[in-house]
Design a protein around this nucleic acid. Structure first.
Lengths: 199, 199
DNA sequence: ACAATGACAATTTACATAATTTGTAATTTG
DNA sequence: CAAATTACAAATTATGTAAATTGTCATTGT
């Protein structure tokens, strides 16, 4: 007989599937427990609350995209290339989630809006990746901003519209090609700004 | 005896006061009519629906700030100065509304989120002011973008975070001075980008 | 000791129904 | 005739209650 998947991971994967299928409102601990082959009380051995279980599902997705971003940031390419790919990957990741998995996107949006710990920590780590790449660009001489902190804030503020879930949801019906073109312009300008010491 | 304020304006000012005090959810046509000294049916002589009345209140505010923006755009100053003041006035107007009148801000946010006609038209007119000032800057030689449409989209996208109600609401608890500093940086950079033909 | 359960209280949600509000139209008033 | 009202249907919201879910804990089984 096959070794059964440990309870915690089984709960998590069932919960993930339920959240995708039914959305936040119709997501119940009872139904998840049943499908995972246990009573709901046992779920509470592994997750302290319904909200914590939902956060755990969102966190899995956040961590997955974080790894993709970290791979980019850790690569051997020039800082400018890496910063561009970092921004594009973040924007595309969130945008694809919105179109391919609206329920999970809604859960992510709520976690961000309500400033859950998972989203605050994700934000901190993603910001750290941006900082690392920009610092690397400064060290290599590719970027020459007059104020490093200001430069980082500028990049994050300027790209906000294409990265933040709440902003992305506003443009759900704008043709993707048009959004892509505007983002490409913004990135090109931001890189030039960092390179030329305008900031 | 004093000539009574005409019904339509009286309804509108009572409605404005009720919206500010009670918010969208507790705003009723019946209560507005009562305070305006008439039955609710008579309100429908002037406004076709509850939603239209709320939109009219929001529209008064939008038009007021539009006039302020138009005054800036019509002024005799250099285009760069006017563009800076345009962005600052828009950002400050929305931000002050958020802190001083959260209920009206919520009504505005909803009108924007649901793409009501009033907000779409406001957006179009405000965008036209931006276009006018940028075109003026191009005509005077102050701005030299390689692509005029791209430049306009860039300015609007980059400042989105400080102007759009949904984005402003996210930063309600960030110290205003810090937000102001970041916006000042963004504006300075945007102007330099327009001036130097980076875009 | 650890995973899981059954039983149970607290909380939330679903649902039926009452009350209110929205919106329309015929009628009244000045 | 323009402004307003009364009267009423339709739609929405409030309220009370049943049902389900969330969360706790003592107990069971391994």
């Amino acid at each position: 007989m096959p070794t059964r998947e440990p309870s915690e991971t089984r709960i998590l994967s069932v919960a993930s599937e339920h959240l995708r299928q039914f959305g936040l409102k119709r997501f119940t601990v009872v139904a998840v427990a049943e499908e995972a082959g246990m009573t709901h009380a046992n779920v509470y051995r592994y997750f302290p609350s319904r909200g914590a279980l939902i956060d755990a599902v969102v966190d899995v997705w956040l961590k997955t995209t974080e790894r993709r971003l970290a791979d980019i940031a850790d690569g051997p390419d020039p800082a400018a290339d890496k910063l561009e790919r970092l921004i594009l990957a973040l924007a595309k990741g969130n945008r694809d989630l919105l179109s391919e998995d609206p329920h999970l996107f809604a859960a992510l949006s709520q976690a961000v809006a309500k400033r859950h710990a998972i989203s605050r920590r994700n934000r901190t780590r993603v910001r750290a990746l941006f900082e690392r790449v920009i610092d690397e660009g400064i060290a290599s001489g590719a970027f020459e901003p007059r104020d490093r902190d200001r430069a980082i804030a500028f990049v994050i503020d300027a790209t906000h519209r294409f990265i933040h879930p709440a902003a992305l949801a506003l443009e759900a019906d704008v043709p993707q090609a048009s959004v892509d073109a505007r983002l490409a312009t913004l990135i090109r300008v931001a890189l030039r700004v960092l390179e030329t010491g305008i900031i």
